[in-house]
Design a protein around this nucleic acid. Structure first.
Lengths: 170, 170
DNA sequence: ACACATTGCTTCGAATTCGAAGCAGGTAGG
DNA sequence: CCTACCTGCTTCGAATTCGAAGCAATGTGT
């Protein structure tokens, strides 16, 4: 074991409130996601990921697999699997892109839009009950601003361990 | 299909900012979790769930499986699996409770504490870079307060579909 | 003490997840 | 055009996840 042998309780953290914020954040979101999962499954027979995919497509009409995977924060292979399920269920279609023969364009079907329309009210109701109800409107706006900033900040980050995509130095 | 046939774009949401807050929240947390996962795996060979379990035990010393599962927001069976892995790795021990013969007490080992001590600095560093860096201290405090409130609010909720645990009406 | 619901945990099977490897289309330099 | 690399997606295998069912210990009412 190469680890230090001091007791954790002696670890003086710069800002203990920081970890608290992080833990409260992840715990609350876990609880929230869990309830949302139940509602989506019960009312629409879809999972959270599938709902996210459908919501993304509902706004954009059609997207490539890569765009979708990036949008919903999902592995490529996982998305292939989910897109397969959605296609089998008739909620999306997959076809080649006219521009790039490699790309797969995923498009939402009318049935897919129906599903979104069917589950969205319940989805909003659940989030209202669990999230909005606990947070005054002013704080909700702050929350949105803060988390939007965090999201953008993380998206900007270069993937730490992936070599900075520099062109070959010629 | 029983779904309404109107276009989603016509759906007048009470507060469009609400969904935005929810989506920004889940997206940011997904991105954050993803990076944290990499760091924990790389530096300590443990997953996020395992880290959460160790952190809970690091504070409490020992907990029952149920207490752990509730604390970490995880299925019972999933926790059994993870506790098995952690025990095999020598980071925790499992034993019967003196008070309740059914209960399994999970306790953290010195090696488990070493692991926490080993990964925690890196964990803090990642969250600092991705979360704290993007959020001024004042907002971070607000974020903590808001999400703590949300967490408590959800925990209070009766599990919607589970019958209100009323005693048999005699 | 005796039934019977409840609680705490594990086992089981099916579904989902990810990364690594593979395949085909696209692109750049000579 | 040829070689080499890059990109977009899928396939594959291994690990993880959950809920349902099962098992043992507790609690409750009579």
């Amino acid at each position: 074991m190469t680890g230090p042998d001091f007791d954790l309780s002696q670890l003086k953290l710069p800002e203990p409130q920081q970890l608290e914020a992080y833990f409260a954040l992840t715990e609350a979101v876990s609880l929230l996601q869990h309830q949302v999962e139940q509602q989506l499954r019960a009312e629409g027979g879809i999972s959270t990921v599938q709902f996210q995919i459908l919501m993304a497509l509902n706004g954009a009409g059609q997207l490539t697999m890569t765009q979708l995977a990036d949008g919903v924060v999902y592995s490529r292979s996982g998305l292939t699997y989910q897109a397969g399920l959605l296609e089998k269920a008739g909620l999306v279609t997959r076809g080649p892109s006219p521009e790039d023969e490699r790309a797969t364009l995923v498009a939402i079907t009318p049935k897919g839009r129906d599903t979104v329309a069917k589950v969205l009210p319940g989805h909003i109701e659940v989030t209202r009950r669990l999230l909005y109800e606990a947070v005054p409107a002013a704080d909700l706006r702050r929350l949105r601003d803060i988390m939007s900033r965090v999201r953008d900040h993380i998206r900007e980050e270069p993937p730490r361990s992936a070599a900075p995509r520099r062109r070959r130095t010629s």
